[in-house]
Design a protein around this nucleic acid. Sequence first.
DNA 1: GGGTATTTGTCCGTATGTATG
DNA 2: TCATACATACGGACAAATACC
Lengths: 465, 465
Amino acid sequence: MNNFTFTLDPASRVPLYQQLYAAVVGEIRAGRLRGGERLPSKRSLCRHLGVSRSTVETAYGILCDEGYISSRERSGYFACELFRTPPAPEPPPLPRRSAEPACRIDFSTGDVDTSAFPYASWARLTKEVVYSSPQLLQRGDRQGDEPFRRELCAFLREWRGVSCMPEQIVIGAGVEYLTDLLLQLLPEDAAIALEDPGYTAARRLFELSRRAFVPVRLDAEGMDVQALEDSGAAVAYLTPAHQFPMGMTMPVGRRTRLLKWASEREGRYIVEDDYDGEFRYFSRTIPAMQGLDPGGRVIYIGTFSRSLAPSIRVAYMVLPPPLLDAYLRGFAHSSSTVSRLEQETLRRFIAAGLYGRHLRRMNNLYRRKQALLTEALLRLEGASVSGADAGLHLLLRLEGADAVRVAERAAEQGVRTYPLASYAVRAAVPQDTLVLGFAGLTAETIAEGCRVLAQALAAERANKK
Amino acid sequence: MNNFTFTLDPASRVPLYQQLYAAVVGEIRAGRLRGGERLPSKRSLCRHLGVSRSTVETAYGILCDEGYISSRERSGYFACELFRTPPAPEPPPLPRRSAEPACRIDFSTGDVDTSAFPYASWARLTKEVVYSSPQLLQRGDRQGDEPFRRELCAFLREWRGVSCMPEQIVIGAGVEYLTDLLLQLLPEDAAIALEDPGYTAARRLFELSRRAFVPVRLDAEGMDVQALEDSGAAVAYLTPAHQFPMGMTMPVGRRTRLLKWASEREGRYIVEDDYDGEFRYFSRTIPAMQGLDPGGRVIYIGTFSRSLAPSIRVAYMVLPPPLLDAYLRGFAHSSSTVSRLEQETLRRFIAAGLYGRHLRRMNNLYRRKQALLTEALLRLEGASVSGADAGLHLLLRLEGADAVRVAERAAEQGVRTYPLASYAVRAAVPQDTLVLGFAGLTAETIAEGCRVLAQALAAERANKK
DNA sequence: GGGTATTTGTCCGTATGTATG
DNA sequence: TCATACATACGGACAAATACC
């Protein structure tokens, strides 16, 4: 029989039975108490430790429950056999995120201005929603709650010219999540055409999913239809409202040509990523491509993350009937990835007209930022601006300058900019052009950023001569 | 030159320019106005329609923006060429969800009691969080916010014996989402061993992801190690705290043997699905397998959906260093799938001790339900109950009765139960056993459900003789 | 062919009703 | 409540393109 050598500390905050439990576990796991060995009887142990029998009894009970020891009636407690696992060869150091260089001002295309977030309404609505119905705590529809989808459907019709039934909408935690889901609905062998230059994050997503994708070149109106045809792709991923990164809006003629392309063969689809579609500065927002499509070949994808706040992870996808069918057959089980409380909050937010109001407000706010930035940029030597009619970024062309070098010089001063070339895969793009997002900046940081950019440009120009 | 025949309605709520816009779009899309044809000049049209020039100007401007028409300076507006797409062959009727048969009482294993949801604290915290920091609206860490992970880490250590660093935790919108993510981190060709009988939803997930999976038989302690070894699988998906559906808790001896199995070859892993681990009725909760593992071979997965509310979509996963490495390299970009506001709400909820309190409360509540149900069931003829020490379901054995037929008879009376056999793939399981979840039921529905079950059992027994 | 009148797109100032804060 | 800003609608001024003589 094993003789325990440890003692318990009655003054400790930790209950005695837990101390005893931990001690026995330690003995067993250290190998000092082997499988099959008999433990001290409850009586002898409680005498030895100077505690009551029930303390030992509780500890032994837990040890039994967990399988460290087992009792043989009227005979004693015996340790169970454990298997030792060698510790991992070396505790590999946790990989550190690479520290980004200090960056004061970032012309990132992904940032969003949240200063005008409707705190008061949001706080009120979230609170109301918690109390509104106990049903909202229960598991909901994987597609998203029906009332929310109805509201969203009406909103999309009015604001984006999307024509659909609530049944076609799928709600999910972010565009990435929905795109991933969509990939599972599309034919497995369908190659996907991406705009080149195009959205880097989408490309990464397709890479990760081990999907075949083909970069397809653009012309002034958007994706080149002949090149698309030649690529052999079955699915085209497009940003018609405000092409990323070139910034052009696809005219209706090109839209209808692409729709015709899609309708010409079974299994062809167009993914319309309307990431920016709510923002347009010199005319009404342009209706989505989805609304032009009588053939059910367009998947429309949008999100609240850019219009409300990036941390709100709600995106939506409108499936044409054949894909909806595939979805309902294979994926309609399990739960939505979005909290129903959040869905209901958003539903009320839209229904009360607060979302429309917020969008108008953000449109004005961004229009001013865009104007400010454009004005400042046009003072640069040889500069021209394009793609600025809509969306949250624009293109700055610096006639004859090397955009990468200018960006590097600006980065040294803590101002981050993005050469157009970094978004291209195979396409030849102007080497003197930068992509500048302005949503996350203020009047001050825009001004300061442009000053630094001017210096960088001047230095680069001087150096070149 | 085209002569427009439509008129505008100045009394309408819709603005004149929009009426005009819609009319022109209609002309073009209907083909009455062909590509290249000239539109009426602004002046002649405004005279003809009896509106001001700027009205026409606004409409033409929008048509230009969208690419329906283009202007030749001081010469006129001309329609652009559109391509016609044939409408989808037939508007396929939207597939209807099959209506479930009326069900008054459901012994589902997935339900949760939300009657004790901490409405007041939750409402207060969510509201506070909205106002707490503007930073919370911005894009966050894809893994989940660091403060939240720290808090969760401490909680998991204390409550579940999970030993990890906050860096190892990944937050995601539900266990399904995280499992899917995990599959992408595991070696592509690794076959996955599933408990048989086991969790049906997990099986479906692996099927959808086109992963090779092998059902592996259980014995009284859990997954059969020899069978696992023979299966050739590299990854074992386990529910050690309360096996689903059998309900046994895996003793430490088996845990260590499985850990030894995992450590014996490079690339072997154990997925510990701790879906139920918070609930244990006759002793403390049993520490997770993850805490026993010195070798970094266990992925621990848990969720708030069962402990707080199913509609709250927050789950967590603890990655061992090698997988964390893969995650950071490939997936650390983009955003989390969980709203940061919700993460911060949960963080405060845990930090304030409210979550611990809630878990204790739910434990008591479920213990009472379990006792009620067990007591009622044991009054049935030839009944025995097992797997009831923990979790939210138990097994009811009805000596010699056909569980499927009993379930059918009960279903006719609106009481849904789940034959054990429905969870098995290849394993031979008792045909006289039902799986009963009790979390979603009340004292009344438990009583009523058992009454119906008794009738169904009696009827089945009578019929058999 | 060249001059002129007319038509045309473009740009701009303004008025009114309404939504917003 | 009131000031502001915006959407809608109106019409004048201008210069380039076109048609006509």
